[in-house]
């Protein structure tokens, strides 16, 4: 007889792994990637490949030569970070900036804290914000979505709908006039607008969201909390004065709200553990995003909002606990 295995219970396991979860998110991002390639052409392909390859390479190098660990790139988390980083930058960004951004994302955002599972901030957003602050000109020149024929670095650039809105409003123009320079809501929905590579196609991102919910990769609480908060907050402003504030749907469909809420804010490592905590976290992101958009200097604020709320996650985890079975009864007695 073979030697019997002995271990404490349970003896069966759900058919899942970290690797599978990571690749499920990657799969969920593919529709959006397809839309981006359709709208931005070669640039999208080059940016994606550069970001993914450099993220994986940096993770391997750091684990192999600095941390002296067994490299764990096969778990897919570096691929996911690279993909999300690419989704967050314009498609005409020079390769060297992307490589620096990847190094910051993986090196500072993730490995310096001890690798997957230990990073307090979303690595891709750390990379993006670093690039945004260090290379503001390159990071805010958005190629116009002209289609697959679009060229890489010398693409025609234009402003994002949010940028147009922000500039117009600060120049004192009414919303109704600005709206004529902006694609219709329907066009915004399927992604015909300028912006970062992966943030434009709300439709594709929602398809990915549905896939992730179906595969039980994420829970719906965080995105729903963010969407509801943004709708409520911008809705109130819009009802007060529709001429100086854009409508809620416009806010939802433009900028990185979809990408951020569905894929960045739900990052396991940097989001709260309890359902109550998820609501607080999502509402926080929504409020900060709108505050930056409406009152701040930047036209878009979701990446900052997510990073700020990331910082609160340990605090939320400490004070917001799930309701324990039998707890209330005890208090009542």
């Amino acid at each position: 007889m073979n030697k019997l295995f002995i271990s404490p219970s349970p003896h069966v396991y759900e058919d899942t792994s970290v690797k599978r979860l990571m690749f499920d998110v990657v799969i969920a991002l593919l529709p959006a990637l397809a839309f981006s390639i359709y709208f931005f052409g070669m640039g999208a392909i080059i940016v994606t490949l550069t970001a993914v390859i450099s993220c994986v390479a940096f993770e391997w190098l750091i684990q192999k030569f600095i941390l002296k660990q067994e490299p764990s790139i096969s778990d897919g988390s570096a691929i996911l970070t690279g993909l999300l980083l690419a989704f967050n930058i314009p498609t005409n960004l020079p390769i060297w900036i992307i490589i620096i951004g990847s190094l910051v994302a993986i090196g500072i955002g993730k490995m310096s804290f001890g690798g997957l599972g230990n990073n307090p901030f979303n690595p891709a957003l750390v990379g993006r914000v670093f690039m945004l602050i260090s290379f503001p000109v390159q990071m805010t020149s958005w190629p116009v979505p002209t289609g697959f024929s679009n060229r890489y670095t010398d693409a025609v650039t234009g402003a994002t709908p949010l940028g147009v809105m922000k500039e117009g409003l600060s120049a004192g123009k009414p919303v109704s006039e600005l709206m004529s320079n902006i694609p219709s809501h329907m066009e915004l929905f399927y992604g015909h607008m300028g912006g970062s590579m992966g943030e434009i196609a709300a439709l594709a991102l929602l398809i990915g969201f549905a896939y992730m919910l179906f595969r039980k990769v994420i829970k719906c609480h965080i995105p729903v909390a963010i969407f509801t908060t943004i709708i409520a907050f911008t809705g109130i402003l819009w009802l007060i004065n529709p001429e100086s504030n854009a409508d809620p749907l416009f806010h939802l469909l433009t900028g990185g709200v979809m990408l951020g809420a569905i894929y960045m804010a739900t990052d396991y490592v940097t989001s709260p553990m309890s359902v109550k905590g998820m609501w607080i976290y999502g509402i926080g992101i929504g409020v900060i995003t709108v505050a930056i958009r409406v009152f701040g200097a930047y036209p878009e604020g979701i990446s900052f909002a997510i990073l700020i709320m990331n910082a609160f996650v340990p605090l939320i985890n400490m004070y917001v606990k799930p309701k324990r079975f039998g707890e209330e009864v005890k208090d009542g007695q």
Partner: peptide, 10 residues
């Protein structure tokens, strides 16, 4: 492997 804080256990 490392805990990825996916909160599935919670």
């Amino acid at each position: 492997s490392n805990c990825i804080r996916c909160a599935k256990c919670v």
